[in-house]
Design a protein around this nucleic acid. Structure first.
Lengths: 196, 196
DNA sequence: CTCCAGGTAGACAGATTGGTCTACTAAGGT
DNA sequence: ACCTTAGTAGACCAATCTGTCTACCTGGAG
């Protein structure tokens, strides 16, 4: 019932599936059944609406992912679950997060390439948040600092790479491939504390 | 002097730095100094021009990368060189390939999300070509089939992930991080033939 | 009781979009 | 000599874009 929220949700769905510049404000209005005046009452411009959709998606995505990771044991199992979650997402089995159309933040950054753009910055913040989430689970493995950093990089890059390949190439098994690589590389990290 | 080529080059530069939908045909015309009639003589529509820029970039990028990889020994050194090349690209030290604004193919796929879209398909073809290039160097390591597939996945995902992180997050060291991970994981693959 | 925030519908403005078209020029092959 | 191809400049078209504005409705707080 909150019109602002309705606008953001509708705009997100359209932007995500069709692209941001490709979707006009009038379509968002028509699809949501909200009056134009109302939109410009809540947002001073389209760009501000776009930024709001980025923040909305940030919250939704983060909520979904922490939910998935929280359902298993913290540490390595959670990192494995990350890839399973991605796999479900790619195959449209992650209801909460909608159909897979690539990473909304990567897509938005593609359309707003200037690094000092507010929309791009919001996307960067999202990525930083996800890296922090990964980092928190890597920390539980009690590895030396250097190894921990490297493992965080590995998971982050594998995850990001899988999303890219799944979208651009249509390789929907990318998450499973990433998972296999991760599993193999970290085969020696089963225990929380490595024997010294 | 070839107007068609001039149009494609100009269009690419503009599309790459500002986004495709964000750049109008008139800007391409103005920037290249070519008449509108000439454009529509060579391309039936803007979309066809876009597709041509994708194929142009595909060729340029592939040429640049094979050149870099060919300058060192094939196999593992070439794979390491891949990450060095990425690092140079991110930092604007890869003159031939222009300023870094993310991966043009990822960006284009973001704006043309339908998988059966000709532009998107051209992007997918490019990625497949790069994967094949990586695969050809992995093959030289003479690993068992399963391990070879996994290593190709690793390099591909690391590379794709690094590009994403470098662009969205502005983490320009992503290539070096990926390289460190790769170096660590493949520390045992120094020899061409693993002892059996 | 009054006022105002939040809402509706939609006309309107000004710029920009992709694309067509006329009129003309120049080079080259047959 | 002729015709095709590639080119110029730019007017023009219909559609669409973001954003403003008028005129009106409604519910709750001071």
């Amino acid at each position: 019932m909150d019109k602002r929220d309705l606008l953001v949700r509708t705009a997100f769905k359209l932007f995500y599936t069709q692209g941001i510049h490709a979707v006009g404000i009038n379509l968002v209005l028509q699809e949501s059944g909200v009056a134009k005046k109302t939109l410009y009452h809540h947002f001073p411009s389209k760009d501000h609406l776009v930024e709001a959709t980025v923040r909305f998606r940030d919250e939704a995505y983060h909520h979904w992912l922490t939910g998935r990771l929280g359902a298993v044991a913290a540490g390595r199992p959670a990192l494995l679950e990350l890839f399973s979650a991605l796999d479900d997402w790619f195959h449209g089995r992650a209801g909460e997060i909608d159909v897979f159309r690539g990473c909304f933040f990567i897509n938005a950054s593609a359309e707003f390439g200037d690094r000092d753009n507010a929309i791009h910055e919001a996307c960067a913040e999202h990525k930083a948040k996800i890296v922090a989430l990964i980092q928190s689970h890597v920390a539980l493995l009690a590895l030396p600092a250097g190894q921990a950093r490297e493992l965080t990089d590995l998971v982050t890059l594998l995850k990001e790479g899988a999303i890219s390949m799944a979208h651009v190439q249509g390789n929907l098994d990318a998450a499973l491939q990433a998972k296999a690589v991760f599993e193999h590389v970290t085969a020696g990290f089963h225990k929380t504390q490595s024997p010294s």
